Simulated scan of single mutants.
Amino acid sequence: MELRQLRYFVAIVDHGSLSRAARVLHIVQPALTQQLQQLEEELGAALLHRSAQGMLPTDAGKLFYEHAQAILKQVGDARSAVAQSADKPTGTVALGIPQSASGALALPLLKAVRAHYPEISLQMTEELTGNLIEQLKSGRINLAVLFDDGQLSGFAVKPMVEEEMMYIARADSQFISKRKVIPLDKALQAPLILPGLQHGVRPRIENIVRQAGLSIDNVIDINSIAILKSALMADMGATILPVAPLLSEIERGELRAWPIGGAKIVRSVVLCSSKNIPLTNAAGAVERLVLEVARELCASGRWLGARNLM
């Protein structure tokens, strides 16, 4: 198996046809077909099939595509690490951020990278926590902002901030009262619109509720922050979340947030990298900048409900 075969296969999947991939790769189509056939023979499985939509990966092809991407990225990182200057890092850095943290961190970080390291190309992806963990393990991303649930021992972990979770509902919701603090048992009486269990926030909430001897009986599971916001605005229920992903709506007065009494519901936000794959100079520079930006956001109060852990 050769690296060029991996590049060819990824290009075919990305472009959806042999002819388009051949043009992009600047090779003739018969040569591309031959390389694909050799790769399939070596693996003992069909990787692609023709359909009305073009060339699509088989189940085996989908699995191989993820590994091929990870291998090609690590090779690119290795080349960059050799070529980079420590004083002027360059190259591509892939950073993953969960949906519920991107509202506070993503834009300030993008601006900071452009200001401090214009020659670094930052590829930022917003995903569920479980997806980010898998991508970090496989090497498809260099860094990931994750929530410390005690299960991150396989990564190099740097603490960032601790976020308080609050009871949030539409400003005129039927599920609110005039209390300044909502007791946990009262908060659980409303239909709760929460991310699914694969999301980093949900297990933390479930654990705190169990420790208090209570249970969540009426839940609407929604994994999209945009859809969750729409459900809150339709007054289908309330939520328990950090303020960050709903900050714009709270600032406009469309949603309100209340502290939760009787239990301290917080989550620790950390920055993770692989223990097995060395960071390039560019990735190391972005790692330091993420921590610096998080510290500044806490100090200025722009990351509401967050306390610096550094």
Rank of each mutant, 00 (worst) to 15 (best):
F64D: 06
P118V: 00
V145L: 13
S138Y: 06
T129C: 07
L136T: 02
T125K: 12
L122T: 02
G139S: 03
Q74K: 08
D87K: 10
A70E: 01
E119Q: 10
A60N: 08
L47E: 01
L122Q: 02
A101F: 12
K62V: 11
L132C: 07
V145A: 05
L107A: 15
I120S: 00
I133E: 11
A94F: 10
Q99G: 14
Q135H: 15
G76Y: 01
A106V: 07
M124P: 06
L122W: 01
L110P: 00
G91S: 07
D77M: 11
L136D: 04
K73Y: 09
S102P: 07
L107F: 12
R114H: 10
A78L: 09
A104G: 10
M55W: 14
A70L: 00
P98Y: 02
A78Q: 11
L63Q: 13
P98E: 03
A115H: 12
G44T: 06
G76L: 02
Y65N: 08
L48R: 03
Q84W: 03
E66F: 09
N131I: 13
L43G: 01
A94E: 09
S80I: 05
N142T: 02
G130A: 12
E66L: 13
P89C: 05
L107G: 02
I133Q: 14
R50T: 13
L109R: 00
L105A: 06
K111R: 15
Y117W: 08
T125E: 14
L105M: 11
D77G: 10
A83N: 14
K137S: 08
L72I: 07
A115L: 13
I97Q: 05
I133D: 06
R114S: 14
I120F: 00
G103T: 04
G91F: 06
L72N: 02
A45D: 06
G103C: 05
R140T: 07
L132F: 07
Y117H: 11
L128E: 10
K111Q: 15
E66P: 05
L146A: 06
V82Y: 11
Q123T: 09
R79T: 11
K88D: 10
A115D: 14
M55L: 14
I97M: 13
M124N: 02
Q123C: 06
E126R: 12
P118R: 00
G139V: 07
L132V: 08
Q135G: 11
V145C: 09
T129Y: 09
H67N: 12
A104N: 01
G54I: 02
Q99I: 07
H116T: 15
A83Y: 07
I133N: 05
Q123L: 10
L47W: 01
E40Y: 13
L43W: 03
N131G: 15
G103A: 15
G91Y: 04
P118W: 00
T125L: 14
E126Q: 12
L95I: 04
Y117A: 01
N131P: 06
A78F: 07
K137E: 10
A86M: 13
H116E: 15
I120H: 00
